[in-house]
């Protein structure tokens, strides 16, 4: 524990009615006592060890479901006349694929047990996000490689990345917001949003043809920035929820 934190605790516990005297000596004494009598609490593992454990228990099914979506996206890209431009339509499916993993605690009523563990429901969500995000990143890289192979050029790579990011971030942010708000029907809502997004993006090019013109790039970049900001806010909330005893994603019955 840092000296600053230790002093704050001492002030809080001892300092009713004024500044406690000889704070430095007290801090030093606390440290000496703590070294002489180490706490009987067992050492706990850090985030990376925890992440490895979450991967061990949940990683494989989560990545396999994403792999299935990747396969579908590749087949669609290879069979469609739009080629890899078909791929962004499938990005919400990568979210759909991970919904069961993110909501399984809620579905099987394990979320309360998970929430009162040291790592809490918030950190568990963060670990799942790292695994799901890593998987999605690998899939996206593969799809971009496919684009290069199909087009034999890297010319439109930037466009495709942006076209993929917007639907992905929209659905991911919506899913995190639903978990944060502890919606009872979070999972079906999230699935509906993902499927609705697939439908919307499939028809976006015919409904809003201007959206895919070079001049609309600014709109896409703005959308990426907005959704990245919203996504970052959700991540900050998760980190904050983990630091405090602030329950995350618990459905109040």
């Amino acid at each position: 524990m840092r000296n600053k934190a230790l002093k704050r605790m001492l002030r809080q516990d001892l300092g009713h009615g004024g500044e406690p005297v000889r704070l430095e000596e007290t801090v030093a004494l606390c440290r000496r006592l703590a070294q002489a009598h180490p706490a009987d609490t067992e050492a706990r593992q850090g985030f990376w060890g925890f992440l490895a454990d979450v991967f061990h228990f949940e990683g494989i099914p989560l990545l396999l479901s994403q792999l299935a979506v990747l396969l579908a996206a590749c087949l669609a890209a290879l069979s469609s006349r739009m080629g890899v431009y078909e791929v962004p339509h499938y990005m919400p499916l990568f979210i759909l694929a991970v919904v069961p993993a993110f909501f399984r605690g809620q579905h099987y009523r394990v979320s309360e047990v998970e929430a009162v563990t040291r790592t809490s429901g918030a950190l568990l969500t963060l670990a799942r996000l790292v695994i799901a995000g890593g998987g999605a990143l690998v899939c996206l890289t593969f799809l971009l490689a496919l684009e290069i192979w199909l087009q034999r050029s890297c010319e439109n790579l930037g466009h495709i990345v942006i076209y993929c990011l917007v639907p992905y971030l929209t659905c991911m942010t919506a899913m995190l917001a639903l978990i944060r708000r502890s919606k009872r029907d979070g999972a079906p809502l999230c699935m509906a949003i993902a499927l609705g997004s697939v439908f919307f993006w499939r028809h976006a090019s015919s409904l809003f043809p201007w959206l895919y013109e070079a001049s609309a790039l600014g709109v896409w970049v703005a959308a990426v920035l907005v959704y990245s900001w919203l996504f970052a806010k959700e991540i900050v909330y998760i980190i904050h929820a983990n630091k405090e005893v602030n329950m995350y994603g618990i459905v109040d019955r």
């Binding site: 009523r109 309360e112 047990v113 009162v116 040291r118 809490s120 005893v245 019955r253």
Partner: peptide, 17 residues
């Protein structure tokens, strides 16, 4: 935060698995 959860054990009424 986690310092409290670390010393806590809980069995909910509606125990899920």
């Amino acid at each position: 935060g986690e310092a409290y959860r670390d010393v806590l054990g809980y069995l909910p009424q509606d125990f899920g698995y």
